[in-house]
């Protein structure tokens, strides 16, 4: 349970990080909060030759308002996001989700960007940032890119951040007026990885859904968007029977959840159905109150 030896760099600027990434490429890994990365090193599932520590790099930990929302720096601690009045006001879905991520001891150290770039399919932030239409600012060896959430999450632990790239910050745009939102997950014990989780944002006009974004965690290789469920909502007046029908579509058509020691495929479908129905009703109620 001890990590294999590595060479350690503690750069102070993004330019230095980029130079190191260019120099070491695939042999190097960047270290953010380390709450997932260090255990994988201790298990020796990861044995990078070079570790580039981002904790001393200037300018990566900010959390600021912009015209259309928030910009959250890749090294912003999860606990900071959780406790930010700015986040509570401009991104309430995010604020509601943060306490579900592991334990306070993990969130004190774990970072916003680190969790997203790690892209564990059981983690909350990828699903939530997906339904919030988040955008990712990635520094490449040549220039920068803004990547939409739908293009950011590629597969299991794989994102649009390449081996020589660095995720700089994430934009969380404001919700459209008349939006409702919700996040719920189920885990055996508080703080454990969820067996299933559901994040949803609904845009309503009166009782009719203009746009729906629904994503699930722990049911596939990344955050899984429920496109069929979304299509079944859009253009429809909201009502209990519709929400139940959508929950069934999501659980039985949108997802093909894995079975493992923690939950069978059927149980995950059951949870997905219940959590989808509950989050949808909550989102409808919130949209109506908006």
């Amino acid at each position: 349970m001890k990590p294999a030896p590595f060479v350690y760099f503690a750069p102070q600027t993004v330019d230095e990080v980029m130079d190191l990434l260019r120099q070491y490429g695939d042999d190097a890994k960047v270290l953010a909060g380390g709450q997932s990365f260090i255990p994988t090193m201790s298990f020796r599932l990861a044995q990078p030759e070079v570790v580039i520590d981002l904790n001393g790099v200037e300018g990566l930990a900010g959390l600021r308002e912009v015209d259309n929302g928030l910009h959250i720096g890749t090294m912003c601690r999860q606990r900071t996001v959780e406790r930010s009045p700015l986040v509570a006001r401009r991104a309430p879905l995010l604020a509601e989700t943060m306490p579900s991520i592991a334990h306070p001891q993990i969130r004190n150290r774990g970072t916003f960007g680190g969790s997203l770039a790690h892209a564990d399919p059981a983690s909350e932030l990828p699903a939530v940032v997906s339904v919030l239409n988040g955008r990712f600012r990635i520094r490449r060896q040549r220039g920068e890119d803004w990547v939409a959430a739908d293009d950011f999450f590629i597969s299991l632990f794989e994102t649009a951040v390449g081996p020589e790239d660095l995720l700089l910050e994430v934009e969380i745009p404001d919700l459209a007026p008349g939006s409702g939102w919700a996040f719920q997950e189920f885990s055996r014990r508080q703080g454990d990885f969820a067996l299933v989780g559901v994040a949803v944002v609904l845009e309503l006009e009166g009782h009719v859904c203009r746009q729906a974004r629904l994503a699930l965690l722990s049911v596939g290789e990344g955050p899984v968007r429920a496109h069929l469920g979304e299509a079944a909502l859009e253009g429809q007046p909201m009502g209990a029977s519709l929400l139940q029908r959508v929950a069934e579509i999501v659980a039985h058509q949108d997802i093909d959840p894995p079975a493992d020691i923690h939950a069978s495929k059927d149980y995950r479908r059951h949870l997905a159905e219940v959590l989808t129905r509950r989050t949808l009703s909550q989102a409808v109620a919130r949209a109506a109150a908006d």
Binding site: A10, G34, Q35, D53, R79, P104, I106, N108, R109
Partner: peptide
Amino acid sequence: LLDGAAVRSCLMFAVQ
């Protein structure tokens, strides 16, 4: 406690 906040010391390197 790291700067007053509870963290797990097995999830940090001493050098940090």
